[in-house]
Amino acid sequence: MYLVSRRVSQLGKTPSRLEWIATLTRIQQTLSTTRKVMRSGKFVAFFQQAVRTLAGAGGDEVVRVLGAAHKLGMFVFMAADTLGLLGTTLALVRLRNPTRVARIGQRGWMYALIAQLLSALYQLRGLALRNADLQRVRRHVGKTGDVMGERECAMEEQAIRTQRTGLTRQLTASVLDLAIPIKGLGILPLNEGLVALAGSITSLMGVQDVLGKAAG
């Protein structure tokens, strides 16, 4: 929509072009409402996941806490999103300050993404240390000619590579998505076109993940 509006402004606003923009705007609003309806109520699941994550035993403590922080942030975002849907879009409940509710939701999303980003960075650092240890072991195995040890090292190297790919993808998505609440909260004056592009990229990444799981 941003690019279309810019293009129409450059070419000149004729009645047909304005009608076209109005139609695209209605489609965009309908899609936005549909997404909100489909994810309404998900805040309950995120809260339950946060509680389970905090109550869980074992694993890395930092990853566990950051994972719970991500789930709690998403709980706030989804709860505010559902309230906005009921109060603003469907007018089923009365909200005294819908703008404040929306900003609270944006903050929750921003904190969730920051927690996810920090978790990915922390785990990538852990993988780097793990890979360094593996290379030392591999050099020793190479000197001794241990074939079985070489196979185990190769399997471990593949596991590290797979985890690194997933975490890098998660990190990229978090950074791109972070532009949306940062723009919405007015923290940085980001270009609307760049924000829309970032959202489109992460949406395509999400579709790719869903298709990959379906194919698997």
Score class of each variant (00 low, 15 high):
Thr162Lys: 12
Thr30Cys: 13
Asn191Tyr: 05
Met74Glu: 01
Ile104Gln: 11
Thr168Asn: 14
Leu124Cys: 01
Pro15Ala: 04
Leu66Thr: 00
Leu66Ala: 02
Ala215Met: 09
Leu31Tyr: 08
Val63Lys: 07
Ala198Arg: 04
Phe77Glu: 03
Gln163Arg: 15
Ala214Thr: 04
Val210Asp: 12
Gly199Thr: 12
Leu121Lys: 05
Met38Gly: 05
Ala68Val: 00
Arg151Tyr: 13
Arg17Glu: 05
Ala45Lys: 03
Lys183Trp: 06
Gly105Tyr: 00
Phe77Met: 07
Trp20Cys: 12
Gly145Pro: 06
Thr34Gln: 10
Ile160His: 09
Ile182Leu: 11
Arg64Glu: 01
Lys143Thr: 08
Gly184Met: 10
Phe43Gln: 02
Tyr2Ala: 15
Lys213Pro: 08
Thr172Pro: 08
Asp60Ala: 04
Lys143Cys: 09
Met110Phe: 14
Thr14Gln: 06
Val37Asp: 05
Val44Cys: 03
Ala198Phe: 07
Phe75Thr: 02
Val137Gln: 15
Gly58Phe: 05
Gln170Arg: 04
Thr23Phe: 10
Ser16Val: 12
Ala159Gln: 08
Met148Ala: 11
Gly212Asn: 13
Leu31Lys: 06
Val44Trp: 02
Ile180Phe: 07
Arg100Pro: 08
Lys71Ala: 00
Ala57Gly: 08
Gly206His: 00
Arg161Ile: 04
Gly67Ile: 00
Ala115Gly: 00
Arg64Met: 00
Gly84Ile: 04
Ala112Asp: 02
Gly142Lys: 06
Leu86Lys: 05
Leu185Gln: 06
Lys71Cys: 02
Ser200Glu: 10
Ala50Arg: 02
Gln29Phe: 10
Pro15Arg: 04
Ser40Val: 01
Gly105His: 00
Arg96Trp: 11
Phe46Lys: 00
Trp109Lys: 06
Ser9Cys: 12
Arg136Asp: 11
Asp177Phe: 11
Val44Glu: 02
Ile104Asn: 08
Tyr2Pro: 15
